[in-house]
Design a protein around this nucleic acid. Structure first.
Lengths: 204, 204
DNA sequence: GTCTATATCCAGATAGAC
DNA sequence: GTCTATCTGGATATAGAC
């Protein structure tokens, strides 16, 4: 029975097991309250393997960071491919972020809730990274095409995404106890009124 | 000359020196990257004194937390004393928060930027604490008096304060590089449009 | 109450067999 | 590549003189 021992061994790559375990622990306890031994235990691998694959604890954090930021960027790119107007793009991004906050909580929490500069050396702030720069670009586009009123780019970005991101943070903190999906329509309404052109909103 | 040795000794209480040093270090490096020895060195006291006064590192963090949250609550109370309408109250709070972000950066950073639940045991989320509950109460008041349009309380709060808090976070991260004061008027405009009643804004 | 010197513990990292 | 056993540094915390 040469294959028997392989039956329960769905060949999930070891890197993936380590990253999944680390993400789970980092998010639930905070990076500094997790030891490499904790990760090793939860991932069911040895310490040696972790050091072989990632070089250490910070290496895991870095790998997670770039991997998840990549996923987020792909999401933004997909939205930009599927939608042309700034309004549709922003709405879709906010809707997806709300969805992921419920269904892929750990990923959203690691992106929006961790202070990476405190544990990844020489890490520039996450909000300077590519996906967030693209989000600001979409807002800029909206002002240039006349979909949004003209204002300072930072203010515009904070107005369009600030309310939504704030709700995500409160949700992750456990302060908001209902799923975010139910808030989506009202959030979008406030957002668009805040960025409305002078002539709008004339009708409600 | 019995008093000579007291001349340079402006009698700043030792607790205060410890807390000031700790706040500075916690904010600049992050709680977990600061040792008690670092605090001891920067405050120019012995490690024994620190354990005498605060019982340990977490004790310092707790004392800072309650002290600063108290200051914030006093600020909110003062605003509520000086202003009656929800609009004026919210505007003043946002203006003050923007000011403090520039002038008392460490305090704002410790309140808005630290993950206290990760290093203070049994700490409930800061946004459930009294000053933030009062801020939500003001928004609720605005909806009840008809200053703001009626919507979900969470959405309303995120709309009124979310953009401003988002900008504070980006400023603390170093992503926004200009002082926040210059953004105030535009932020408030977006906020009030987002919360405008149905009949407004008719004129611009 | 304040200080120095010390104890204790545990996390990150490594060595070397397999 | 993976594992176990071990090393080492540094952090929190304490003891005990003053």
């Amino acid at each position: 029975m040469p294959y028997l021992n392989r039956i329960p061994c769905v060949p999930e790559p070891i890197d993936c097991r380590i990253l999944t375990a680390a993400l789970d622990l980092f998010v639930s306890r905070g990076y500094h309250n997790v030891s490499v031994h904790d990760v090793q235990k939860q991932a069911n691998v040895s310490i040696g393997s972790i050091y072989n694959h990632f070089g250490g604890k910070e290496g895991i954090a870095k790998a997670l960071y770039s991997h998840l930021l990549n996923e987020m960027e792909e999401m933004i790119d997909a939205v930009m491919r599927d939608h042309d107007s700034a309004t549709a793009r922003c709405e879709t991004i906010i809707r997806l972020l709300f969805e992921y906050t419920e269904t892929r909580t750990n990923i959203i929490a690691y992106i929006f809730h961790a202070k990476h500069t405190e544990f990844i050396s020489n890490q520039s702030p996450i909000y300077n990274s590519s996906p967030f720069v693209k989000m600001r670009g979409i807002v800029q586009q909206g002002m240039e095409t006349g979909e949004f009123r003209m204002t300072d780019p930072w203010v515009a970005t904070a107005c369009v995404f600030g309310g939504a991101i704030r709700m995500i943070q409160l949700r992750l903190d456990g302060v908001i106890q209902q799923p975010l999906g139910g808030f989506l329509d009202e959030v979008l309404k406030s957002t668009w009124w805040g960025m409305a052109l002078g002539r709008e909103p004339k009708t409600l």
